[in-house]
Design a protein around this nucleic acid. Structure first.
Length: 656
RNA sequence: GCCGAUGUGGCUCAGGGGUAGAGCACGCCCUUGGUAAGGGCGAGAUCGUGAGUUCGAUUCUCACCAUCGGCACCA
C-alpha cells in the first residue's frame, strides 16, 4: 500500500495513506498547531501556500502559524476579505476591487455609491469583529474564468470581472466565507475566527489601477495581528514614531519653518542653518579627497538653455518661469544644475586627459512640485543638493560608479546611517540609445556594486530614458521611503549640448555625463537624519553644543570666562544665566537634546573645573576645564557620533 | 493635481450664532535655589483669507490658500 511521506523541519517524517493537506499534517502533529496553522511552505520555498493544498510524497513541509512573521501575511490577507465583507454588509452598492497586504497591514479599495466617511471606520471595525465572532470557515473553490466573470458581472462587480478577464487564465480560485465570496489567489486562514485583532486605520483616495486617468476609489487602510497585545504594541510604536517626525522635532528645536507665502520652501533658522552648513562643509572636505571641483552657477537662465538641455520639453510643468525686461525675455529658474554645468564644461577645450572632470555645485534649485506632493523637508520646492556632474568617457563608467559608492559609504558610515537600500533602475521601454550602449551602462553599474560587495535590487524599466541609475533609499519615521543618494548615467545631455573632448586618437568624442549626489537633497537629508537620530544630533551637527548653567549668580564671572574659552576653541556655546533653578534649566536643555550641560556652582569655581551632564542623564562631575575642552574639541573636530564622555566613569557624587 | 481631514495668542489644544479660554513660552516682582517644571502679578488673538446667509459670524454656506493622511507625480 503506497503511503505519502512528508518531511518536517526537524527531519522527522510523517506518513499518510492519502495525500494530506497542510492542515491535515498540522492536525496529525497536535491540536494546538492545527489551531494556529494558516498555511505552509514546501520544499524550501519562501512562498506560503494555502493550508488546503494537498501535498505530494516526499514534500518537505514547514507549517506556518498565525503568530509567525510569515503567518501574519496570511492573517492580514484574510482580514482584508473580512473588511470587504463587513463593508458590503454595512453599505449598499459598494463595489470591491483589490485588497493586498502591505507593510504593517493591508488595505482594500472600494468604489462605494456614497462616500465612506471617517465615522464609518469604527462601524467597519465593529462589523469586522462581528464577522470574526461568527468564525466562518473559509472555503476555497475553483471556478472556470468564464463562470467567474459572469457571476461577478451579474452582481455588478465590474472591477472583479475586469480583473479576471485581464488574468487570461482558464480558471480562478474563489474564497467563500459564509455567503460572501471574493476572487483570490489565497492563501487564507481556516476561518474568520483565526483573526484575533484588527484595527481600521484610515481612509484615502486611490486611483483604480494606480492610474490618474481612472476613477478614484476609496482606500481603507487597516491592520491585523495575532492577538490584541501585538496590536497594542504596534499602535504604541506608531505613537513613538510620530514623536520623531522631523516636522515636530524641527519645531521643538527651532530648526526650520514654513510660511504660507512660500509653500514647500523651508526657512532654516540660525540653528537649522548650522546643521545645513556643517553637512555641506563635511562634503566639501571630502570633495578634496575624491577630486571634485566646486563651482557656482547662475540661478536664472534664458529659456534657450532649457530648450537646448531638453528640460523645456520634458520638465516645463515643474519649472518656475518669469519674463524680464522691455522685451519680456523668458527666463527659467534652474530646477537642476546640469545645464549650467554643461555650459561651463563647454567653455573650454577638453582633452581625454582632463577626464573624469567632476564638477560639484550646492546651487539652490527650484522645482514646482505638485501641491499634494509636498511633505515637510522630505519633498520641497526649494532645495540644494550636494550635486555634481561627472564628465567622463564610456570606459570610465565603472570606476566612477565605484568611486561614487565608496564616497557614499564613507559619508553614510560617518553619519551612522546604515539602513539603506540600493536600487539599480534599468532601461525603460521608451528610451534613447542602442541596446549595446545600455548593456554596457547597466553592466558598469552592477559590476561596480558587485565589486564593492554592495547588495542591491534591480528595478527593471525604472531608469530614465537617457540612462540607468543607482538610487539609495532610506525610510522615514512613518516608514515612507525616500531617495537620497543617486548616480545616473546620461548619454542625452552631452549630445544636446554638443559636448566633446579630444581623444588620444586626436578626434572629437562625446563624453558621458553622470548626475550624482551623496546626501541627495540637503533638505530631505536633514529631514531623514532628524528622524534617524530622533533629534539627538552628534556634537558636530548640534546647533548648540553646550549650555553653561550657573547655580547662583556668584558664578557669573566664572561662567562668562568659561564661555569665552569654549568659543575660542570653536565650540557653539550658550550661557543660561536666567534667574531659574538648576532643575528648570536642565529640564529645558534636556528637552532640546543638548549634548553638554555644564553646571557651575561654588565647588566648580573653587576647583577650576566643570561638572558635566550628558543628555543621556549621565553625570561626570568636577572635570578640570582644560580636560573637558580637549576632549570635546576632539569629539567635534573628528565628527564623533557619540559623546566622548558616554559610559565614562560618572561615579563622583555631589559633595556639599 | 485628485480624494478626505484640519486651520483658534509664539507653541500644544479647549470652546462655540451675541466680537474668546487653558497650559507652556514671554515680561515684571519675590525667591540665590546643586541635576527634568519654586511662587505671585501681567501683557499677548480683528479665531487662515475672501464672499454669502443673518439684526449679529470666529462659530453656518461657498470659494480660495496652507497643512496633514493617502493616491498620482518625483524628466
Amino acid at each position: 500500500m503506497a503511503s505519502v511521506r512528508i518531511t518536517l523541519p526537524d527531519n522527522s517524517i510523517k506518513s499518510f495513506d492519502q495525500s494530506p493537506t497542510i492542515l491535515q499534517v498540522a492536525e496529525s502533529i497536535g491540536p494546538g498547531l492545527a489551531k494556529n496553522c494558516v498555511g505552509g511552505c514546501i520544499n524550501g520555498s519562501k512562498d506560503i501556500i494555502d493550508l488546503r493544498t494537498p501535498l505530494s510524497d516526499g514534500d518537505r513541509l514547514e507549517i506556518v502559524t498565525s503568530n509567525s512573521e510569515k503567518g501574519r501575511e496570511v492573517l492580514r490577507h484574510s482580514a482584508a476579505h473580512i473588511m470587504a465583507h463587513a463593508v458590503q454588509e454595512l453599505f449598499k452598492n459598494v463595489k470591491v476591487t483589490i485588497g493586498p497586504v502591505v507593510d504593517d497591514g493591508f488595505y482594500y479599495d472600494f468604489d462605494p455609491e456614497t462616500q465612506l466617511t471617517l465615522n464609518d471606520l469604527q462601524k467597519i471595525e465593529d462589523r469586522m469583529y462581528e464577522i470574526i465572532q461568527r468564525n466562518l470557515p473559509l472555503m476555497k473553490e475553483v471556478w472556470p474564468s468564464d463562470k467567474a466573470i459572469k457571476v461577478f458581472a451579474e452582481m455588478g462587480e465590474s472591477y472583479k470581472a475586469e480583473i479576471i478577464s485581464d488574468l487570461k487564465t482558464s480558471e480562478v480560485s474563489i474564497y467563500k466565507q459564509g455567503t460572501w465570496f471574493d476572487l483570490c489567489r489565497g492563501p487564507h486562514v481556516q476561518s474568520t475566527g483565526q483573526v484575533k485583532a484588527v484595527k481600521v486605520m484610515s481612509i484615502a483616495g486611490a486611483y483604480w489601477r494606480g492610474d490618474q486617468k481612472n476613477k478614484q476609489l476609496q482606500r481603507v487602510y487597516a491592520t491585523a495581528f495575532y492577538d490584541k497585545k501585538e496590536l497594542k504594541e504596534h499602535l504604541g510604536n506608531l505613537e513613538e514614531a510620530k514623536k520623531r517626525d522631523h516636522r515636530k522635532i524641527g519645531k521643538e528645536q527651532g530648526l526650520f519653518m514654513f510660511h504660507d507665502w512660500a509653500p514647500g520652501m523651508p526657512f532654516f533658522t540660525a540653528k537649522g542653518t548650522v546643521i545645513y552648513n556643517e553637512l555641506a562643509n563635511y562634503i566639501r572636505e571630502l570633495y578634496r579627497k575624491y577630486d571634485y571641483k566646486e563651482v557656482i552657477t547662475p540661478q536664472l537662465y534664458d529659456s534657450n538653455l532649457f530648450i537646448t538641455s531638453g528640460h523645456y520639453g520634458h520638465y516645463k510643468d515643474n519649472m518656475y518661469f518669469s519674463e524680464v525686461g522691455e522685451n519680456k525675455t523668458e527666463v527659467g529658474v534652474k530646477p537642476m544644475n546640469c545645464p549650467g554645468h554643461c555650459l561651463l564644461f563647454d567653455s573650454e577645450k577638453h582633452s581625454y586627459r582632463d577626464l573624469p572632470y567632476r564638477m560639484a555645485d550646492f546651487g539652490r534649485l527650484h522645482r514646482y512640485e505638485a501641491s499634494g506632493a509636498l511633505a515637510g523637508l522630505t519633498r520641497v520646492r526649494s532645495m540644494s543638493q550636494d550635486d555634481a556632474h561627472i564628465f567622463c568617457t564610456d570606459e570610465q563608467l565603472q570606476s566612477e560608479m565605484e568611486g561614487f559608492m565608496t564616497f557614499l559609504k564613507e559619508v553614510y558610515s560617518a553619519l551612522g546611517m546604515y539602513e539603506y537600500k540600493v536600487f539599480i533602475a534599468t532601461r525603460p521601454a521608451s528610451r534613447m540609445g542602442s541596446d549595446d550602449l545600455w548593456d554596457r551602462a547597466e553592466g558598469a553599474l552592477t559590476g561596480a556594486m558587485d565589486k564593492l560587495g554592495v547588495p542591491y535590487q534591480i528595478n527593471p524599466g525604472d531608469g530614465a530614458f537617457y540612462g540607468p541609475k543607482i538610487e539609495v533609499h532610506f525610510v522615514d519615521a512613518m516608514k515612507r521611503t525616500w531617495q537620497l543618494g543617486t548616480i545616473q548615467v546620461d548619454y542625452n545631455l552631452p549630445k544636446n549640448f554638443n559636448l566633446s573632448y579630444t581623444g588620444d586618437d586626436n578626434t572629437e568624442h562625446t563624453p558621458v555625463v553622470l548626475h550624482r549626489a551623496i546626501l541627495g537633497t540637503l533638505e530631505r537629508f536633514i529631514g531623514i537624519y532628524i528622524e534617524q537620530c530622533a533629534g539627538k544630533f552628534p556634537l558636530w551637527l548640534s546647533p548648540t553644543q553646550a549650555v553653561i548653567m550657573n547655580v547662583t549668580d556668584r558664578q557669573t564671572e566664572y561662567c562668562l570666562e568659561l564661555k569665552k574659552k569654549l568659543i575660542a576653541q570653536g565650540l557653539r556655546v550658550e550661557y543660561d544665566n536666567r534667574n531659574e533653578k538648576l532643575g528648570y534649566k536642565i529640564r529645558e536643555a534636556q528637552l532640546q537634546q543638548m549634548p553638554y550641560m555644564l553646571i557651575i556652582g561654588d565647588k566648580e569655581m573653587e576647583q577650576g573645573c566643570v561638572s558635566v551632564r550628558l543628555r543621556s542623564g549621565e553625570m561626570i562631575n568636577f572635570i578640570p576645564t582644560d580636560e573637558f575642552i580637549n576632549k570635546v574639541v576632539g569629539e567635534f573636530k573628528t565628527r564623533q557620533l557619540t559623546s566622548v564622555f558616554e559610559n565614562a566613569n560618572s561615579t563622583k557624587e555631589i559633595s556639599h
